[in-house]
Write a protein that binds this DNA or RNA. Structure first.
Length: 566
DNA sequence: TGCGGCTATTG
DNA sequence: CACAATAGCCGCAG
């Protein structure tokens, strides 16, 4: 039996789960070292509900797999990504930043130790240079219980430094809040990976079959089916002109089209779409492309690789990847073709609560730029309606103009609407323009919530040449969009974290940039939907640091299948 | 075998 | 066909 009575309610407790023991070290100084990790964790969680401090999602996954779903955490790797940008968060880098060192100077792990090697003391985690001992960074802290305790103490040290650093971050007063929600998102990713997304396998197979036929019996059968699909395109050509045509090679498709009198710059679907009437082979190619996509990416192989015996679709989740810190997922979880979505179905006796944020990016722009006029427009469920009225244009024109402004669009016929935007919402437009200008010059940016968007390490700047100007303009669009998309991602994760905390026993099973899918017992459907909506208001308070200036809206529905409308 | 180009899907 | 992502196949360089 372990004793959690020495810990204080809600305090930060660092945890390191080693091979010969687990260490819990509280901010108050209370410490538990135990060989029964999960009894201790469960005990402490229910007794004092701490903010668990761990080095990375690995530990979160160990919690989840042991059936423990803690309320609060602090993920050093996730917070490191917030402070430093990018996707890396290994202990060596996290520690180097805490000590103000260049992570590139950290020594590599020793390969072959010879007579002349100076062996660092394996019991000391920090080298004379201040860098983390490479063996510790690689996991040697697991092997010895004293080292495991030391590893937890180091985590607590880094956590304090990260929190102080975020609290001092000028112009980003909500950065500490962001650190907590980013940590929660990382924990949520561990849960998403463990739980998976419920899938109706029979329905999935039925849909796949409509594109590429029944499941092939063997490799030869699969080759035969492939050849038959190819044939349905090639039969439109004469025996001579079909020689050497490879439908999987765009250049070959281009020459195929030339043989039937169709000249195109490239063979993208939207271009071919316009030439449908020119020759029946165009239709055949477009059908072939759709089937080929299912066959290669979302077919029986995909099903076998990513759907478990429990009929759950699983992929790898990242809480903040890429430019602006959006969540990403593999295994098709973020780009599943609409045709396959009817296969995502709640289990028997369960329903989904599906919730979509409405017009999240322009609402976020209104909030982060502090544009009172644009913020006023967010009072409407459809904020493009008042914007269109203000600009004196059709709703669709207003929408394209606003999106174009956020993406940095330079072409198109929205020039007049663009000038009206500058007049009506100068504060928001200035926010975007300043972000673009700074990014063009290669200056790093930070999102509203404090995430660093690195512009300084993305290659040569260049300005004098055409190519240099093109690259600078691309950087400008990238930076301009990153501040909106990144802040939207932070808001979404805040919402997801609040939902997660409020919906037990329901579970979030999918996060998709502005959409949540929650799996819940059928009798709790409407209760859960209500909690998801209420969480939006709560998230807005958290994300703004207490004073929401814009209204956020969600469309929420209780459905059986993902494809069912909100 | 690794990488850039092309293509598809999604928000 | 702007901004972001994952992922497949092809051709080509090493």
């Amino acid at each position: 039996m372990t004793s959690s009575s020495n810990f204080e309610h809600g305090e930060a407790i660092a945890i390191a789960i080693g091979g010969s023991g687990t260490a819990l070290v509280g901010r108050s100084g209370a410490t538990i070292v135990t060989s029964d990790a999960f009894a201790a964790i469960g005990d402490v969680e229910s007794a004092v509900s701490p903010r668990w401090v761990w080095w990375s999602k690995e530990t979160a996954t160990e919690f989840v797999r042991s059936g423990i779903r803690p309320l609060r955490c602090w993920d050093l790797a996730a917070v490191h990504r917030l402070l430093e940008g990018g996707w890396r968060g290994d202990p060596g880098r996290v520690w180097a930043l805490r000590r103000g060192l260049d992570p590139g100077d950290a020594p590599p792990r020793r390969g072959n130790v010879d007579l002349f090697t100076v062996v660092d003391d394996p019991d000391r985690p920090v080298l004379g240079t201040g860098h983390l001992h490479p063996e510790w960074a690689h996991g040697s802290w697991r092997g010895d219980v004293d080292r495991t305790r030391r590893w937890a103490e180091l985590a607590l040290d880094v956590q304090r430094w990260q929190a102080e650093t975020l609290a001092r971050l000028a112009d980003h007063p909500t950065a500490l809040t962001t650190a907590r929600s980013e940590s929660a998102a990382e924990l949520l990713c561990a849960e998403l990976e463990t739980d998976g997304l419920p899938l109706d396998r029979a329905e999935a197979e039925r849909i796949i079959a409509t594109f590429i036929g029944d499941r092939p019996l063997d490799a030869a059968d699969e080759r035969r089916a492939t050849a038959e699909r190819d044939e349905r395109v090639l039969l439109h050509l004469g025996a001579a002109s079909r020689e050497g045509i490879d439908l999987r090679n765009p250049a070959s498709v281009k020459s195929l089209l030339r043989r039937v009198g169709i000249e195109v710059d490239d063979t993208r679907a939207w271009r071919l779409e316009r030439r449908r009437g020119d020759h029946p082979i165009v239709d055949a190619i477009l059908d072939w492309r759709r089937a080929e996509r299912i066959a290669t990416t979302f077919g029986y192989r995909w099903l076998d690789q990513h759907v478990g015996d429990d009929d759950r679709l699983r992929g790898t989740w990242s809480a903040s990847d890429g430019a602006a810190g959006r969540m990403t997922a593999t295994a098709g979880l973020h780009n599943l073709p609409a045709e396959l979505r009817p296969a995502i179905a709640a289990e028997a006796g369960h329903v989904f609560v599906r919730a979509d944020l409405g017009q999240i990016e322009p609402r976020i722009l209104a909030a982060v730029s502090g544009d009172a006029a644009l913020a006023a427009a967010t009072a409407q469920h459809d904020m493009y309606a008042p914007v269109a009225a203000e600009l004196g244009v059709e709703r669709e024109v207003a929408k394209v103009a606003v999106l174009g402004a956020m993406y940095g669009q330079t072409t198109g016929h929205g020039a007049a609407a663009r000038r009206e935007l500058e007049r009506a919402y100068p504060v928001a437009m200035d926010y975007l323009t300043r972000a673009a200008r700074r990014a063009e010059g290669g200056n790093d940016l930070r999102t509203h919530g404090g995430r660093l968007v690195r512009m300084s390490t993305s290659g040569p700047l260049g300005a004098g040449t055409d190519e240099g100007r093109t690259r600078a303009a691309a950087r400008g669009r990238y930076g301009r969009n990153a501040l909106v998309q990144g802040a939207a991602a932070e808001f979404f994760k805040t919402w997801a974290a609040v939902v997660r905390a409020r919906i037990a026993p329901a579970q979030i099973v999918l996060c998709l940039h502005d959409e949540l899918l929650v799996h819940t017992p059928a009798h709790l459907g409407s209760v859960t939907a209500g909690a998801v909506d209420a969480a939006l208001t709560e998230a807005a308070v958290h994300w703004t640091g207490g004073r929401p200036t814009v209204r956020f809206v969600a469309d929420t529905a209780v459905v059986d299948r993902w494809s069912d409308a909100c």
